[in-house]
Write a protein that binds this DNA or RNA. Sequence first.
DNA 1: TGACAAATGCAACTATATTGCATATACTAT
DNA 2: ATAGTATATGCAATATAGTTGCATTTGTCA
Lengths: 142, 142
Amino acid sequence: MHLTNFHDCKNELNEAQLRATPARIALMQLLEKSDKPLDVQTMIDFLDKKDIKTDPATVFRIVNMFTEKGLVKPIQLNEGKFRYELSTKAAHHHLVCERCGNIEDISNCNIAALENDIEKKKHFKVTSHSLEFFGVCESCQR
Amino acid sequence: MHLTNFHDCKNELNEAQLRATPARIALMQLLEKSDKPLDVQTMIDFLDKKDIKTDPATVFRIVNMFTEKGLVKPIQLNEGKFRYELSTKAAHHHLVCERCGNIEDISNCNIAALENDIEKKKHFKVTSHSLEFFGVCESCQR
DNA sequence: TGACAAATGCAACTATATTGCATATACTAT
DNA sequence: ATAGTATATGCAATATAGTTGCATTTGTCA
C-alpha cells in the first residue's frame, strides 16, 4: 500500500486510533517516501519547509505515539539519537557509511535460521532483530 | 589474554599509548570481567564503589579515548545511550530483553557470507556489523 | 454545529554527552 | 629518586536529545 497521498495517510492514522493532524499526515507521507530511517531533526525541518507550524516536543510525542501504535520502528545507528522507519516496510537492514554518514537500506536478509537457533538454544522469544553493517560506501572509497 | 589483573591492564593501556591512570585501569578490569556491554553510569557507580574519585566528564572522555584507540566498541541498544565492550572479545551478538532490559551476549555468528554478498553487490566495504535480537528472555516468559 | 477527548504549543526540566581551562599526575630522562 | 613535560583530571558551563505539566486548540463524532 502506498501512503504518499493525503487520504491514505489519514486512513492509516485512523486505523491506529490516532487523529489525523496536519503534522502527523505530513510525517507519514515523509516516512513513506523515505528510503532510509529518519531522525527527529529531519522531521522538524521538513515540517518547517511545508509551513506546518510545530514544536520539537510535539514531534517527539508523535514518533513515540507512532512507535507505541506500531506504525514505526525506532532504531539507533551509533549516532546518539533515534531514527524511525515505517514498520510496514519489508524486513531489511542498513549500510552505514562511517565516513559520510550515509545510510542505505538493503533487503533480502535470511537470518530466520539463526533466530530459530536462538529460540531453541537460549529459550529467548525473539520478536525482532536489528542488523547493521558499518563500513565505507562506494563513493567514499574513491 | 586476561586483563583482570592490574599489570596486564597497565600494559594494555600503554600499548595503546594511553597513560595508566587508576580510573582507566579499573575500567579495563571491569570491561574484561563483564559479560555484557556497559554504559557510562555503570562505570561511574563502579568507580565510586572502589573509592576511585572521578567525574562523569572524565569517564566520557575515557570511553571516547578507548574507542578512538580501538580498545572498545560503542554500541546502542535502543536505550538512548551508548554501551561499550572490549573489542578483543570474540565476535558476538546481543539478546536484549524488552521486558527486563537484560542483555546477554551470544556467539557463533555466521554472517560472513552475507557480508561478502554485500561487498560484491553494493561495493560497500564492510568493516563491522552489529546484530541484535529483541524479544523476551527465558525468565520474563514465566 | 457543539461537545469532548485528544493533540499541540510553550516552558521548564531531565538525561546524556561535550568542551574550556586550571590543576594534578603519569611517564621519561637524568 | 627527582624534575620536567605532556597528558589526564576535576569542575563548571554548555550542547543536544528527549520528556513532562498545563493551558489552549483542534479533530472527530453524535
